[in-house]
């Protein structure tokens, strides 16, 4: 088989698999609707405010409920030391400050 034929075969396979993945994403999103509703119902029933993503510190467990000066709360010169701190951005009111 010619190299160009192999290349186009690879491209077609890639496009086919990408299409399959998009279909998988679409079907999975529909299939997991019930699970999402269950989680949403739990949030509503228990009046939860946050996702349980980082349990390492109280202000990373409940990001939306954290103190206003969270990053420096352990002592005045303390920089954020938890890895999860690097995944979150400062609140908008700090970013937008003139």
């Amino acid at each position: 088989m010619r190299n160009s034929s192999l290349f186009f075969l690879y491209l077609s396979t890639g496009v086919f698999f990408l299409g399959l993945l998009l279909m998988h994403a679409s079907f999975s999103a529909k299939a997991q609707q019930e699970s999402l509703e269950e989680k949403s119902a739990l949030v509503k029933a228990l009046q939860l405010t946050d996702l349980c993503l980082f349990t390492e510190a109280r202000y990373t467990r409940h990001l939306s409920q954290a103190d206003l000066n969270t990053a420096f709360q352990d002592h005045p010169l303390s920089l954020e030391h938890f890895p999860s701190g690097s995944f979150t951005q400062p609140p908008e009111r700090i970013i937008d400050r003139p």
Binding site: A25, S28, Q32, S35, L53, F54, T55, F82
Partner: peptide, 29 residues
């Protein structure tokens, strides 16, 4: 969406000893 972001896991876990096992819904467009 199939391996639960195994490469990112150590960074996401950080200092947590209790980390949720969750499957993300594939929202890809």
């Amino acid at each position: 969406f199939f391996t639960g972001s195994i490469v990112f896991e150590p960074a996401l876990k950080g200092w947590s000893s209790l980390y949720p096992n969750f499957e993300l819904t594939p929202f890809v467009n």
